[in-house]
Design a protein around this nucleic acid. Structure first.
Length: 425
RNA sequence: GGAAGGGUGGCAGAGUGGUCGAAUGCACCGGUCUUGAAAACCGGCGAUGUGCGAGCAUCCGUGGGUUCAAAUCCCACCCCUUCCGCCA
């Protein structure tokens, strides 16, 4: 959420900055609501002040043993007025909150203009896509040939967009998870955390999935309003919801977390229907950082480095793009996508998305710290990024490491996790 | 699932319906002392909203209710602890 004071004192400026996203801020309705709020709030507070003063007077009179009956008569209709005023205030405030809760984050200065994926700007490439001297297969074919990657049986078990892995492929999948967790802990200074895969509405509101994007989520049939997590970002970031870290807290706080992710993919019908690019359930190793505001730009760069490091170690070619205004997510101020080379598509495809949310999520969550210099409470900045999406990494390994005979070499760094195996099949 | 107790400031922990936004301790910030640090002592120190500001308002798990007045009384819900039962 944006700072409401900033939005209502500079609505034109905010609207202008949001244009980069292709978002139109309804300045007029915000101004009108704000004006109503101001009036109702001040009259309500005046009534409250009077009630408080009178009540105090009654208490004092009573303590002195005076007759309070006339005083009671004076306040008779105050109560009804207050009830009405408070109800009106609650209503206008929740209307205003609802409007503000639906306004996306302001893109960072350096975010390029543009309204779609086409306008994202490549900032670097690493590695050289391999030249194959045979016809490349896609991971579905490779998996079928090796045995152990089965989409059809998953359809029987559940439906479309699920996979079953067995044997070496299941083990390779698990190896990727262990490998990434180890690297981020041992080399990048993240602390591992394990969290619930089911969260409540408050958590989803905190990170910005609710109220606007409910259709992307799997909701449990349970009267407690529980949802399956779409990413570890939700539980991990919400660890600090409603918290004030004390002055000596050691920031930045860097956490790494492996979870499954569940996405309804509503609105993606027909897209990436083959293989494991786009599944309802996939594993992901997520990096989350909580930092002091002045550190957040540097933190995003380092988080991006940490994610790229995994691809470098796996020797998978990739490119990194900065998303344009029209393509960044609702809560993000700035996002880099890392795209890995997919031989069967002869394209780079997203494998990680690293974002800075600045204080947008922190404000929704009330995630704060006490600044030791000023001794004042300030909002933290939050960041996160995939480090990496496991299903897509598995896919990339299978395709990039495939051999003419249908076998697949095991990347050097993963061999220890596979009992020393150097190839599958 | 049954029984009992409890949710109060960054933490711990008081609080007969009426100057209680809340004692006290710890932590934190400033200072005195000290070569320096520690200790000791003195002072300060909740959050949010609103206003230039003095201030005013709101907040004691959440939501309702009673009352002129609620941290305090009533109801519902959530969560925690202990005991019993069940259980991976």
């Amino acid at each position: 959420m944006l700072d409401s004071k900033y939005v209502r004192t500079n609505p034109e400026e905010v609207a202008d900055k949001l244009k980069k996203r292709g978002y139109t801020l309804d300045i007029e309705s915000i101004k009108a609501l704000e004006e109503r709020r101001r009036g109702i709030q001040s009259s309500t507070e005046a009534l409250q002040q009077e009630r408080n003063a009178r009540s105090k007077g009654i208490g004092q009179a009573k303590a002195k043993g005076e007759d309070i009956a006339p005083l009671l008569a004076e306040v008779e209709n105050l109560k009804a007025q207050l009830t009405d005023a408070e109800a009106a205030l609650t209503e206008v405030q929740s209307e205003l909150d609802a409007v503000l809760a639906g306004v996306p984050n302001i893109p960072a200065e350096e975010v390029p203009d543009g309204l779609s994926e086409e306008d994202n700007v490549e900032i670097r490439r690493w590695g050289e896509p391999r030249a194959f001297d045979f016809d490349v297969k896609d991971h579905v074919e490779i998996g079928a040939q090796l045995g152990g990657l089965d989409f059809e049986v998953a359809t029987k078990l559940t439906g479309a967009r699920f996979a079953v892995m067995r044997g070496d492929i299941a083990r390779l999948h698990r190896a990727l998870i262990q490998f990434m967790l180890d690297v981020h802990q041992n080399e990048h200074g993240y602390e591992e955390v394990y969290v619930p895969f089911i969260v409540n509405k408050d958590s989803l509101y905190g990170t910005g999935q609710l109220p606007k994007f409910e259709e992307d989520l799997f909701k449990l049939n349970d009267d407690r309003d529980f949802y399956l997590i779409p990413t570890a970002e939700v539980p991990v970031t919400n660890l600090l919801r409603d918290e004030i870290l004390d002055a000596k807290a050691n920031l930045p706080m860097k956490l790494v977390c492996h979870t499954p992710c569940f996405r309804s993919e509503a609105g993606s019908h027909g897209r990436d229907t083959r293989g494991m690019i786009r599944q309802h359930q996939f594993e992901k190793v997520e990096l989350v950082q909580f930092v002091r505001p002045e550190q957040s730009d540097a933190a995003l760069d380092s988080l991006l480095d940490n994610a790229e490091a995994i691809l470098k170690k796996l020797e998978l070619p990739f490119r990194t793009v900065i998303l344009c205004g029209g393509d960044i997510g609702f809560s993000a101020a700035k996002t880099y996508d890392i795209e890995v080379w997919i031989p069967s598509q002869a394209k780079y495809r997203e494998i990680s998305s690293c974002s800075s949310f600045r204080d947008f999520q922190a404000r929704r969550m009330k995630a704060r710290f006490r600044n030791p210099e000023t001794n004042k409470v300030e909002l933290l900045h939050t960041l996160n990024g995939s480090g990496l999406a496991i299903g897509r990494t598995l896919l990339a390994v299978l395709e990039n490491y495939q051999q003419a005979d249908g076998s697949v070499k095991v990347p050097t760094v993963l061999q220890p996790y596979l009992g020393g195996k150097t190839q599958l099949g």
